[in-house]
């Protein structure tokens, strides 16, 4: 998702309109979470990536937020009027890519 215009919603008179048009766009593909669900989570108090994640499951799926974290950061940036560096990213956890239970705990490879 790409927003037109400048970084902050106060500088972008079309922001609300844009959000309305794009509200059904899926931001987190793995968990099928839309833009409007993410904005709702921010309105309910989420202030960073983990806050959005815990409220919506965005970033909890197969890719572990590899694509949507950056998008969510942009949405947070616009909703909270903050610079990206002031928005905490999600916690990195192993495994880096999915591994099977067998690869992890098998004794027979």
């Amino acid at each position: 998702m790409k927003f037109e215009g400048s970084r902050f919603q106060k500088d972008n008179p079309n922001y609300q309109e844009e959000v309305l048009i794009k509200q059904d766009i899926i931001i987190c593909r793995c968990e099928e979470i839309t833009l409007s669900e993410i904005i709702k989570a921010i309105k309910e108090g989420a202030k960073d990536i983990n806050g959005v994640k815990r409220r919506t499951r965005a970033g909890m799926g197969l890719c572990q937020g590899r694509t949507c974290e950056k998008l969510i950061q942009q949405i947070l940036e616009k909703e909270l009027k903050k610079f990206p560096k002031n928005i905490k990213m999600g916690t990195d956890r192993p495994p880096i890519k999915p591994v099977t239970f067998g690869e992890l705990g098998g004794k027979d490879q």
Binding site: L62, P95, G102, L104, G105
Partner: peptide, 17 residues
């Protein structure tokens, strides 16, 4: 993972994310 496979051998092909 080892303990999970002990009870559910079928899990060995399921991914941990």
């Amino acid at each position: 993972a080892e303990r999970a496979i002990r009870f559910f051998p079928v899990m060995k092909d399921i991914h941990v994310i």
